Simulated assay, not measured.
Amino acid sequence: MTSKLQSIFTLPILTSLLLTGCGGGDDSDQAKAPLIPPLAQTEVVIGPASQGAQMKWPDRSTINGGAGKTLDGVGCLLNEDYHIHAHLTIIYNGETLRIPKNIGLTGCAYELHTHDWSGVLHVETDRQKQFTLGQFYSVWGMPLSRKNVAYLQSDEIRFFRVNNGRVAEYLDDPVLMPITAGESIIIVIGPLPPTLPRYTWPGQ
């Protein structure tokens, strides 16, 4: 009698454990997968002041940034045989901040610089070169890490790249993130917004 009762009560428990082991991991894996917000439906045309209105930083490079000498492999531009643009956005606690104008235009015009408040990063060199986001921050004179972006510190900092309407999260060291023509780099500090900004380049 005892063995029969043990069999009756043991079978449902074993069945439950087997089901949990076979299929229960899918939901937990999906729950752990990092959320990537979709792009907003409304497009923002990149222009001289297409970024947010709040200014967190003064214009131009800081005293720790470029001042006319080669810095972190970025020198003064010689000519514009190679000229591309990328775009940078920083969202801090839900608010888009302005990227300062004239970064990299102190002492000389660096191969990597900004002109206005659009967030456009200009790469202008005598030949094709690959620069990184870390090099831009060096010219700016600001720190860049997964815990500190231009002195905005948080345990919640994520980096996204947008190419041709597709969003991908960058999970490596942000200092090494390549700057690619026509790409939008979006840094989110703090809680994720419901959507990421969708930018369009003039004339495209």
Rank of each mutant, 00 (worst) to 15 (best):
M1A: 14
M1S: 13
M1P: 07
K4L: 12
L5Q: 11
L5W: 13
Q6R: 11
Q6I: 12
Q6M: 12
I8Y: 04
F9T: 11
P12D: 05
T15S: 13
S16T: 07
L17G: 07
L17P: 01
L18A: 14
T20K: 06
T20P: 00
D26E: 12
D26S: 10
S28Q: 13
D29V: 06
Q30C: 06
P34F: 12
L35G: 00
I36R: 13
I36C: 10
A40Y: 03
A40V: 01
Q41E: 12
Q41L: 10
T42S: 14
A49I: 05
A49K: 11
G52M: 05
M55H: 08
T62A: 05
I63T: 08
N64V: 00
G66W: 00
G66R: 01
D72C: 12
G73N: 08
L77N: 01
N79E: 10
D81N: 15
Y82H: 13
Y82C: 06
H83P: 01
I84A: 07
I84L: 09
H85V: 03
I90A: 07
I91T: 00
Y92H: 15
G94Q: 12
G94P: 03
T96W: 10
L97C: 00
L97N: 01
R98E: 06
P100Y: 11
N102W: 06
I103F: 05
L105R: 15
T106F: 00
T106V: 10
C108W: 04
A109D: 02
A109E: 02
H113P: 04
H115T: 08
D116T: 10
W117V: 01
W117F: 11
S118N: 08
S118G: 13
H122N: 14
V123E: 11
T125K: 05
Q128P: 01
K129N: 12
T132P: 02
L133R: 01
Q135C: 09
Q135W: 00
F136P: 00
G141I: 05
M142T: 03
P143L: 04
P143M: 15
P143D: 12
L144M: 08
S145N: 09
N148C: 05
N148D: 14
A150K: 01
Y151G: 01
Q153Y: 07
Q153A: 13
E156A: 14
I157C: 08
R158I: 01
F160Y: 15
R161A: 08
N163Y: 08
R166L: 08
R166K: 14
E169D: 05
Y170I: 01
D173I: 09
D173W: 04
P174C: 13
L176H: 07
P178N: 15
P178H: 13
I179T: 07
T180Q: 14
G182K: 04
G182F: 06
E183Q: 14
S184K: 03
S184L: 06
I185T: 09
I187A: 01
I189T: 03
P191Y: 09
P191W: 07
L192Q: 11
L196F: 05
L196D: 00
R198N: 15
T200V: 07
T200Q: 09
W201C: 03
